[in-house]
Design a protein around this nucleic acid. Structure first.
Length: 816
DNA sequence: GACCTGCTGCGGCTTG
């Protein structure tokens, strides 16, 4: 029987037939080609990538058995995943598949939580397939005995490449792949990705230049429907807010209508609050409701995951921590609370439900304030148009390159010219020039000009034979402790007195609590007993109330694509259920002011007792609006001295000048010119401070900050900030041209401020008409911005009172 | 009783 016939038989035994894209992938692999496969999750991409190596092995003559029981053999397949949980799952699946086809393969997993057996196997070279993460792969590269093990590697699969490609983890992966290509030139890398707006970039970042690689896709995307839970009384529905508990009754009815629900919120605090609210009205055994987010202890999370897999849970409230990972076929329904933020993100979440062949994906969206309805309508349109967001692969992140150089110096050493050529085969460092490369080498060898007197920064030595190596054992240990690009510091572990961890909260949050104070965390009411060594010891409390921690995480702006679509939806969509429900509110907007549209920039200036407020609605996403607000304030202040309060959301921004000003369309167009953008932004947005903040992560990746030692109390955030701030100042003073300072400034400009987005928005504003309206009171579009702005100045109580009063006033005035 | 913005991800430790 031919290998292909055997593989087909294996499919047939499961009631499947190979899909066209799977057969294509096998064919290209066997022809010696590389490629990128993009499909919705759960559509058989694992087998598309694994089938090639299987067929290849089946075609080989059988290994004579009986002599040596476990002869050393070369590794065939390296499988890289971004998640440990996926690594275990994949290891199981690959083992079973190989076994069922009669291939006596050893498949092992090499991740931080891998068993001792697997770690031994991975170092010992008696494996056929190795499943690992980018970090663990880098660690392998730091050991000199790894190279022989990879010498005959044939296939590399990078799973969930869309998750990795936009981050420094992706760059770390690119560098490792370049090394593996050098060791085994015959290797064929394959990437697996969800749908992306820029597949070509994804391919270029992953696959070597030269041979044109294959880009394959599953023929049919999984159909998906988006439904909105319309508020029963739109007239009474809040104009601002983010939590949405007013919809609790409706959500509860939907949760009870099916067997299992995944309820997504956008933040960890909201997950805790929704869990608490559902628990208060939960009619069943409390054990059938669970909570899942990134600050919970792994054991607590695994419990929820197991409950989903075994279908013993009715509902799990989760954040993005459940976006990715092991599939849960038993989930019947996905609910999204609040803004979807992006098309890719909502598709990913919706895909978690009814994850069974042939079934349509579905998501129920629950709005937390009125205008979110427009976001849902816009998202539905964007999904239909296939307008999925792009992810930009980082370019020239020299901190990652410096780390990689030390890793390779540890793992047997390198010759400078050869490594230079090697790293330039990656997408991230294709544009690396010789001078910069020399400075990176200089940095790892002597720390550069400012740090050369500190021995701990002299990590790599150029030996007499011209090879760069690490000789110092302390440097080696410290480096292996610090491998990776993810920085997460300053968290306080939450533990019961008798052991048993619940998770982690931020230092600043526990810092405000005194022993005896109560707070809600991990779905429980807790009392702080004492705080010691970055650990908060707690005990369970039965009754009462407590504050919910807030974590300062990412700020999740609406994707630019979606923000633009929201504007078009507001202007044109009169038929979707969401927009029909929103109509009364839009009528108020049109009566008080006017509706924005893609061709028209709407500006509103309002005088209230609390002063003048200027609202601008470019619909460019929150991050861009923050930059635009800073820019406009800076330029206005230059014309006439003034002080501004600012706030921004996904639809627009607000400036509240201390001295009232008069604005007309022409003045605004002048002020919103792209000319001189960089200079004005540098001063207006205080780029120096942003770069200083950005520097902490860079310093960690580049190996300038001492790693915290396992088993010891982690360093506090203050300590870390102090040492990275000190380094920043030392470099700025003694070595102002240092490559890591330049990187910090560039990242602050590109990632923090998103200067490209600002520039694009400004260019668009130049050709848009500008309408300056002077409504007599806050409009529905302006209200959330005003409410947000107030919150910065006032205590929560004052803020609530003011918001309520303002809302009542509006109701009276517009007869809502 | 109403009100709460701020995501995710990995790794090191060992020589009985």
């Amino acid at each position: 029987m031919t290998p292909l016939a055997r593989l087909r038989d294996w499919f047939a035994a499961r009631g499947w037939t190979p899909l066209p894209f799977q057969r294509q992938a096998w064919r290209h692999y066997l022809a010696g080609e590389s490629g990128l496969i993009h499909t919705p999750t759960g559509s058989g991409k694992t087998l598309a990538a694994f089938g090639g190596p299987l067929l290849e092995a089946l075609a080989e003559p059988p290994v004579p058995t009986g002599r040596k029981r476990n002869p050393p053999r070369p590794l065939r397949v390296l499988w890289i995943t971004p998640l440990r949980a996926l690594a275990s799952d994949t290891t199981r699946a690959l083992t079973d598949t190989a076994l069922a086809l009669g291939l006596p393969w050893t498949v092992a997993q090499r991740t931080g939580d891998a068993s001792a057996r697997d770690k031994r196997l991975a170092r010992g070279g008696k494996l056929d397939v190795l499943v690992t993460t980018p970090e663990s792969l880098s660690l392998l590269l730091s050991y000199p005995d790894t190279a022989p093990m990879f010498a005959a590697l044939r296939c590399i699969v990078v799973d969930e490449w869309h998750e990795l490609m936009g981050s420094k983890r992706g760059v770390q992966t690119q560098l490792a792949l370049a090394r593996l290509r050098r060791w085994s030139p015959q290797v064929r890398p394959w990437g697996l990705s969800a749908t992306l707006g820029n597949l070509d970039d994804a391919r270029r970042a992953l696959l070597p230049p030269g041979v044109p690689p294959q880009v394959l896709s599953a023929a049919r995307p999984r159909p998906m429907t988006l439904e909105t839970l319309l508020p029963p009384d739109i007239v009474r529905f809040p104009w601002s807010g983010h939590l949405g508990l007013s919809q609790l009754a409706g959500v509860m009815a939907r949760v009870m209508a099916v067997r299992t629900t995944l309820l997504f919120t956008n933040t960890r605090a909201h997950a805790e609050l929704w869990h608490q609210a559902l628990a208060a009205v939960w009619p069943e055994d409390a054990g059938t409701l669970a909570l899942h987010h990134g600050s919970l202890d792994p054991a607590v999370r695994q419990q929820a995951e197991a409950g989903l897999r075994e279908a013993t849970l009715r509902c799990v409230v989760a954040t993005s921590s459940l976006d990715l990972g092991v599939d849960f076929p038993s989930v019947d329904q996905v609910i999204q609370i609040g803004s979807p933020k992006g098309v890719a993100r909502l598709l990913q979440r919706a895909g978690r439900a009814r994850h069974r062949p042939g079934e349509t994906g579905h998501v129920l969206c629950v709005s937390t304030h009125a205008l979110e309805l427009a976001e849902y309508a816009a998202t539905r349109t964007a999904i239909a148009d296939g307008a999925v967001e792009v992810r930009h692969p980082p370019r020239l992140p020299l901190d990652v390159l410096a780390q990689h150089c030390v890793t390779i110096a540890l793992g047997g050493g390198f010759v400078a010219e050869a490594l230079f050529d090697e790293v330039r085969t990656t997408g991230a460092f294709a544009a690396l020039d010789a001078a910069t490369w020399q400075r990176v080498l200089d940095f790892v060898v002597r720390g550069g000009d400012a740090l050369e007197h500190y021995p701990e920064y002299r990590r790599v030595v150029r030996d007499d034979d011209g090879v760069y190596r690490v000789h110092d054992r302390t440097v080696a240990l410290r480096h292996r402790l610090a491998i990776g690009t993810i920085a997460s510091d300053g968290n306080v572990a939450v533990k019961f007195l008798r052991g048993g961890g619940l998770g982690a909260v931020e230092e600043a949050f526990v810092g405000r609590l005194r022993p005896g104070d109560r707070f809600r965390f991990a779905g429980r009411l807790l009392e702080l007993v004492r705080l010691q060594d970055m650990t908060a010891y707690v005990r369970l409390v039965k009754q009462g109330d407590g504050v919910v921690p807030r974590w300062m995480g990412g700020r999740m702006p609406l994707s630019t694509r979606l923000a633009g679509q929201v504007c078009a939806t507001l202007a044109n969509d009169r038929t979707s259920p969401e927009m029909r429900a929103l109509q009364p509110l839009l009528d108020v907007q049109a009566r008080l002011s006017r509706m924005p549209s893609p061709d028209l920039l709407l500006v509103e200036t309002v005088r209230r007792r609390d002063g003048q407020h200027v609202f601008v609605f470019p619909f460019a996403g929150r991050r861009t609006h923050e930059g635009l607000a800073a820019l406009l304030a800076w330029r206005l202040g230059r014309r006439a001295p003034n002080t501004f309060a600012m706030s921004a959301n996904d639809l627009g921004f607000m400036l509240s000048p201390q001295r009232p000003l008069a604005l007309d369309a022409d003045t605004l167009r002048d002020l919103l010119t792209p000319d001189g953008l960089l200079d004005d932004l540098t001063q207006g947005a205080n780029l120096g401070e942003l770069a200083r903040r950005q520097f902490r992560g860079i310093a960690r990746v580049a190996g300038l900050l001492p790693p915290s030692l396992p088993g010891r109390a982690p360093r506090s955030l203050r300590q870390l900030q102090a040492s990275s701030g000190l380094l920043f100042d030392v470099l700025a003073q003694h070595d102002p041209g240092h490559l890591l300072l330049a990187l910090a400034r560039r990242e602050a400009l590109e990632d923090d401020l998103q200067v490209a987005g600002i520039e694009e928005a400004l260019r668009r504003l130049q050709v848009q008409a500008i309408a300056v309206e002077q409504p007599e009171s806050l409009t529905p579009l302006a209200f959330p911005l005003w409410a947000d702005g107030m919150r910065g100045h006032l205590s929560t109580e004052d803020w609530q009172v003011r918001v309520r009063r303002a809302a009542e006033q509006l109701e009276r005035r517009h007869g809502r």
